[in-house]
Structures are given as C-alpha cells and as structure tokens.
Design a protein around this nucleic acid. Structure first.
Lengths: 256, 256
DNA sequence: TAACGTGTGTGATGCTAAATAACGCAACTG
DNA sequence: CAGTTGCGTTATTTAGCATCACACACGTTA
C-alpha cells in the first residue's frame, strides 16, 4: 500500500467523486419519484447546481442512463455473489436459496433500477449497439451460473425434471461454455436457463406490482415455494436448513 | 337483428371510429419506433391532423395510454382464450401448451404492448388508483386460471411438485376463489401462480431481448422445455401430441 | 331556404426540459 | 504573476405537452 502520488491527480479524484454524486442523486430521485424518467434539471438542483453543468460529465441523458445500467448490473451481481458466499460452499441448496433471495431483495429494494436493467429501458433511450447492457447482463447471470457449475463439477447436481435438450440447445451450451463439455450436459444448461427465467418471472411480477393483491406473507410464501420448485426441477439439492426461512438477506449495502 | 335507428347516433359512430384510428395509429408508431413513448404530434401527423385535435378524444396522454393498456389486456386475454379453445377440451396438456405459446407469441409480436401491460409503464405515466390496469390484469390471467380450474374439477390435475402451501397462501386462495374451496387446494393455487410466473419469466426475458444471444431454434427449445417443466411441476398432464411442436399459433389477428 | 348550435379541427400561445453556446471564475503550472 | 485548463453560470434554441380562442361543417329547426 505504498503512496502512489501521481497515478490519480487531485482533479481526477474530485471529478470521479462528482460523477458518483450525480449518479447517486439520480438514483435517489428515481426512488423518490418512483420512475426511471429523471430530469437533468432535478439532478442538478438536488446537487445545488444547474443543468448544463452535468454535460461536463455526461454527454447526454442517454450516457448517464447507460452508466446507471451498467452500475446496476454490477451491483446486482455483487449482491448475488455476496449472498451466495455467505453460505458454506458445501450447502449448494442453501446457496441457491440465498442467491435467489438476493435477486428478489435487490429487485424489491430498487424497483426502478430493476426496471432499468431487466425491463424495458426508458423511452427515448437507445441502447448502444453491442451495448454494455447485454454484456453486463451476462456477467450478472454468471453469478447464477457459478452455482450450477460448482454443483455440477462437485457431482451434487441431480438430473433436471426435463431430461432432454434439443440439438440447438446443445450447440448454444457448448458455444457458451466450451470448457464444460462433458461436465455440464445440455439439459443441465437448459435447466439453468429455466431456473433463471422462472426466478426472473416471479421477481419481475412482484417488482412491477402485479402480485400486490396477495398478502405480503403470501408473496413471501409464493417466492419461497417458487425457489423450491425451481431447485427441484433443476436438480439442485435441498438446502441444509430447509426451505423455511429466507436466510440472511442481502440488503442494499453495495449500492452503486 | 332489427334496425335500431337511434341507439347510436351517426356522430357517435364516427367518433368511435376516430378513437379507434387514434389508438391504432399509436400502436403502429410504437411498433415502428420500438418504444412505448409516443408523441401526440406524431400520432396526429400520421392521421393527417394536428395535435390539439386529439384532446377532443382523450383528455391527455395518460388517458390514451390507459386505454391502450386495457385494450392490450383484453387482446392478450382473447388471444390466450382463442388458442386454448382451439384444442379439444379433454386435452388439458395441449391446451396448456397452446395457451402458453399464445402468451409468448403475443409478447413477441407486440413487444411494446407487452411492456405496456406487464413491464414498467411509460415514464411520467401514473396509473389511476384502483386502476383499470390492475383489474384488467386479473381478467387476462383468468384465462390461465380457467385451464387449471377445469383441469382440477375434471380430476385430471395431478399433485404439484411442491406439495405444501403456507397458511397465508391458503387464505389468499380462498379469498380469491371462495367457490373453489375443496376443489382447488391451496398448493394447486400456488402451483398456478408459479406457472404464471415462470411462463412470464421466460417470455419477458425473450421479449426484452435478454435471450438474443441464443439461436432462434434454441430459444424455441428453451421455451418448450420451460412449458414442459412448468406443466410437470404444476401437475398438468402431458399434451396428447407431445411437447414436440408449438401447435397452431395464436398469431396477431385479434389486435386491439 | 335560412338561421342556429353542437361537434370538430386549426393556428397561436405558454410551459417545461433537453441540449448548446458564450462567457466568467478558480485552481494548478511554470 | 501570467497562461492554461477545467468547471459552472446565464442566455438561447429546440421540441413536445397542453390550453385557448376562433373557424368550419354538419344536422337541426323555424
């Protein structure tokens, strides 16, 4: 930890801090106003500045949103990873429940950011081609893949409920994970995608308010039973503590 | 079919046609521009009118969007129902595959409308309290419920993969379907919600482009295997034709 | 046939917010 | 102490939502 005097100039550090403050203010406004449609004017006023000043830091509104999206992906991935690592490595089922709960809690505690990354982006927002969003989405999902890969390599992954996979699926699996040929069969790859989709489905419905007619306890119960269903269908072992309680929550501490 | 001269005046009919044209133009623009953020100016120009004229028909942009949302719900429900009814009533599994495929096809063929009803609404759009959207969402989902209810009442619904449901879930189930107490046990109600969530998940990921990295054939395979997984987990019988082909597609003929 | 009234569309106008331009200020540099 | 660079400000332009006052057209009524 030697002092490196010139790697980052003072100006650069101040600038980085300002950028962070802009992004944080934008997120705060999103939560306050319950929308992803934030105004440069409001962000600036929230910081005691005027709108044009923000253009020194972001070329336009799209650029700010793109940064928020990539940050959100990284944060989601970090939350999932943290929740997973908080459970002993030999408790695959426990790690699955922890990861899934982190996914849900992240979405519930930041519905706007969730919409930003996994819903339809803000109107007028055009994702850059070969966008950071796509790449970052893969990275976030990789945290879930990690779980399946370690389960498979340690031989603790049972056969999925759907035991057949098409040739196209096998090609895609091999294309995506060439190093896992033979270790993770196509139907397991398929089951992993199913798990992601099902987890995303229940999370998405809840985050967007489509389950509001259920009592909160019933929503919790639905989520846990969904997690159990997914695990069973994917061949993941049961958690050692059972499916009773949501485990330590990965709440919003790693916020972008 | 007697001629009823005065029930709807000529003016009223012309007005209704104009309203339909406005909504259709708005939907066309959404598809063209691939966004839910449509401008009154553009709608008007597309009809050879000017923007202020639209305010004769809709109080403001929100009101138009609300109508589009409720229409979309009705259309989604109609597509699902049509696909379901196209399969013999005794082929529960076939009806499930048809319904799920209709759900997917509807979302794929109208990604903007899908985002409108089941994603996060347009920025700046505030859903009316006790909104038509919530009520219409229930109605659309009822088309899926219908399947489970008829399966259960005819005794062709097996036990779900997750055989236990919490007390809160049981309360909600009874609260929602008081007439089905005893016929549809809480764990089946829970399994139905799981099925909806899982179906929505894979559909949502695909509609929003998060599965674009898969080959189209692999996406089809993933969807079908997901449908099979859901059916198995929910206790629905297998379709008589097997899970091989997507069945007659409920494509976009009932458009709003 | 002529006057009237309702429904409908238009141009003019206000407002808000994104984005740009031109200018002033402060901090570091030699 | 002067020059450079980066940051922030006050105009200004542009675009779109929403409202207003006015004009036209159609159907009705005298």
């Amino acid at each position: 930890m030697a002092v490196e005097p010139v790697t980052t100039s003072r100006r650069e550090r101040v600038r980085a801090a300002t950028i962070d403050e802009i992004k944080q203010t934008a997120l705060d406004l999103m939560r306050e106003q319950e929308t992803t449609d934030i105004r440069f004017t409001d962000i600036a006023r929230g910081m005691g500045m005027t709108a044009p000043a923000l253009y020194r830091y972001f070329g336009d509104r799209n650029e700010l949103l793109t940064h928020l999206i990539t940050d959100a992906f990284a944060d989601l991935g970090a939350c999932i990873a943290a929740a997973r690592e908080a459970v002993p490595a030999d408790d695959i089922g426990g790690r699955w429940v922890a990861s899934a709960s982190a996914y849900r809690d992240w979405a519930r505690s930041r519905p706007q950011q969730f919409a930003l990354v996994l819903g339809m982006p803000v109107p007028g927002y055009a994702a850059p081609d070969e966008g950071p969003t796509t790449q970052a989405a893969k990275q976030a999902m990789h945290e879930l893949e990690e779980l399946f890969i370690s389960a498979a390599t340690s031989g603790r992954l049972g056969a999925p409920l759907v035991r057949h996979a098409s040739a196209a699926m096998a090609v895609c699996a091999e294309d995506k994970h060439p190093q896992l040929e033979g270790v993770v069969p196509p139907e397991t790859f398929q089951a992993m995608l199913q798990a992601w989709a099902s987890l995303h489905g229940v999370t998405s419905l809840e985050a967007h308010g489509h389950l509001d007619w259920l009592q909160p306890e019933a929503r919790d119960a639905l989520f846990l039973s969904q997690v159990e269903m997914i695990a069973t269908a994917a061949g993941l072992p049961a958690p050692k503590a059972g499916y009773g309680q949501p485990l330590p929550k990965g709440d919003g501490s790693t916020d972008a």
